[in-house]
Amino acid sequence: MDIQIQQLTKSYGFQKAVDNISFSVKTGEVLGFLGPNGAGKTTTMKMITNYIDIEQGDVLIGGQSVKSGEMSQHIGYLPEHNPLYHDMPVIDYLEFCAALQGVSKSIVPHRIREMVRLCGLDIEKHKKIGELSKGYRQRVGLAQAMIHDPEILILDEPTTGLDPNQIIEIRDLIRQMGKQKTVILSTHILPEVEATCDRILIINHGKIVADGTASTLRKQAQGQQVLKIKIDEGEVNQIYEKLQKLETVAMVDFADATHNRFEIQSVVERQSNKAIFELCVKNNWVLSECIPFETKLEDIFRDLTLN
């Protein structure tokens, strides 16, 4: 099932929390929903899950509007802060969620076993939820979202409060799920989107400011190729002059003159790697470093959301 979001708008008072956004997510795609706090991520997710009313626009799931209130059995939702019943044992809770989602009674035990295995809850399954550590609670939250095997997963900050090992486990789980399902996850942890998501959507003040894979976003932000190189032997100024004469090179900068390090910006849409290599061969220089400079996702994010 795919999700189509059409001109979705929601305002609180005079402030537009979500302002006329449209996008779609295909089956088998993991969409990372990025944005600073208060950008409208959670509001959008709450509208997709039909928890809050849609003011304008629509959300279609498999072609059907969520406004009908009948799409909830296709959606698995992990809300922000992962609310749970602390006085309920894990197994009872999963049973309760399965029953609410209308999972037929004969397969409930099977589904629960499956979730316990998938989310690594085996050793904690007989405890009350309130006795679990934060990481395990998060797993219970994920398990309840997936208990009815929904085609769509909406996860609002699924890895907050987890330790690095747990984060990696949860990411693996999401990636695994994402192969057959349609997943939207929100976060403001940038390495996380790179690690888990096929596509990134950045929103700010309720508007979409970027949409694409991590590498296309980088390309857009960067424009020209930037290389950091180090050439052993040879005289600094001589190297500098010769580099500047290359036709693919737009600009050369000394990064560290004493160690023959340079920063080279190529002409738009051109690559300089080959030309630099050939220049070094011709002059008998040793090219000991050649590092493409990547714009960090953090920089892209700051660029897009600060103005």
Binding site: K46, T49, N50, Y51, G69, S72, Q73, I75, Y77, P79, H81, P83, L84, Y85, H86, C97, L100, Q101, G102, Q144
Partner: peptide, 13 residues
């Protein structure tokens, strides 16, 4: 506790 959000986004009116 926020669990009402969990309940109402499930298959229940």
């Amino acid at each position: 506790s926020g669990t009402i959000e969990l309940l109402l986004t499930k298959n229940i009116s």
